[in-house]
């Protein structure tokens, strides 16, 4: 994280101090902490291949990025949730017309300790767990251990996504432990046999690209008697059969032009998508996301 900030800072400095650089203007990208690693790696790779391109990437949370685009303090906002109606309204008021591009798909995975006998849950059950309506794993057919909830903090796009998408816009249980990042949730679950947590798929693997020892990723089904799918199943995420998946966006003010347009079309192209996959996210595939991207480029 620090390394990324430092890189972004030095880029920002370099951009500010060297106005003679051939590219002219630097592209500022701000927003989602879930996406900051991915976007930074995409930017570094793109800059390595494109002489003169200058891109600075900052985190801060999806809300920060969207506010940045509305207030014109960044050129591209990265966000892992949809725009709220209030934000769209603010954007229109300021004459900003956001154009959204899906650059990757994130499968949020529901994870428990490997000692937990449960393998599959429905969306409704996950929601009930996080609303605090189910206090013991026994109610779900597990061992009589108390449920201990792990989640992100309210400044995280993942927190908001879960709340809207899985909890049905209801309050989180007040007993949820609010951890300072995906990695801390994983640390918590590894120690806690009654734990359940939600993290991005990128955080499930160890350095050998295997699921970390001590974690169990749950199958999730949309309907009570439906088939469950794993977030690590590419086909299930891309087809939308895995229910807890979400598109990750980069948004511009109006149709992208110049450097920003070239960078965006490189990301959704084969080279960018190969990096997306390598970083543990899912590619956008050839379906509805590609269609909406193509529409917004024109």
């Amino acid at each position: 994280m620090k390394r990324i900030l430092l890189a972004a800072l030095s880029l920002a400095l370099a951009g500010g101090l060297l106005p003679a650089a051939p590219a002219g203007k630097m592209i500022q990208i701000k927003g989602s902490d879930t996406m900051v690693n991915l976007v930074q790696i995409l930017a570094e790779d793109y800059m390595g291949k494109t002489p003169g391109a200058a891109i600075a990437v900052l985190g801060g949370g999806s809300g920060t990025g969207i506010t940045g685009l509305i207030n014109r303090t960044c050129d591209i906002a990265s966000h892992s949730r949809e725009w709220k109606p209030k934000e769209i309204e603010q954007a229109w008021k300021k004459g900003v017309t956001p154009k959204l591009f899906v650059v990757a798909v994130d499968g949020l995975s529901i994870v428990v300790n490997e000692k937990n006998p449960i393998d599959q849950l429905t969306m409704a059950q996950v929601g009930a767990l996080y609303r605090g309506e189910i206090k013991s794993w026994k109610a779900l057919g597990g061992s009589p251990k108390p449920v201990s909830l792990y989640g992100r903090q309210s400044n995280s796009g993942t927190y908001v996504f879960m709340q809207e998408f899985v909890l049905g816009n209801k309050n989180y249980s007040a007993d949820m432990k609010e951890m300072n990042g995906n990695a801390q949730i994983v640390e918590g679950i590894l120690q806690d046999e009654g734990a359940v947590g939600y993290v991005g798929v990128g955080y499930l693997y160890d350095e050998n690209h295997r699921i970390r020892k001590g974690l169990k990723v749950l199958k999730i089904s949309r309907e009570p008697n439906g088939d469950g799918f794993l977030p690590t199943d590419r086909a299930a995420v891309e087809s939308g059969a895995y229910p807890v998946s979400r598109p990750l966006y980069l948004a511009t003010d109006g149709r992208p032009k110049g450097d920003a347009a070239r960078f965006l079309s490189w990301i959704v192209g084969p080279e960018g998508q190969a990096i997306v996959e390598r970083e543990g996210f899912f590619t956008i595939g050839g379906g509805k996301y590609k269609a909406s991207n193509d529409r917004n480029f024109q």
């Binding site: 903090q153 007040a174 007993d175 949820m176 432990k177 609010e178 951890m179 300072n180 801390q184």
Partner: peptide
Amino acid sequence: MATGNARSFPRGLLSS
């Protein structure tokens, strides 16, 4: 980092 940050009213030294 260490206390879990749960919002509920504390029920003792062993609650988050």
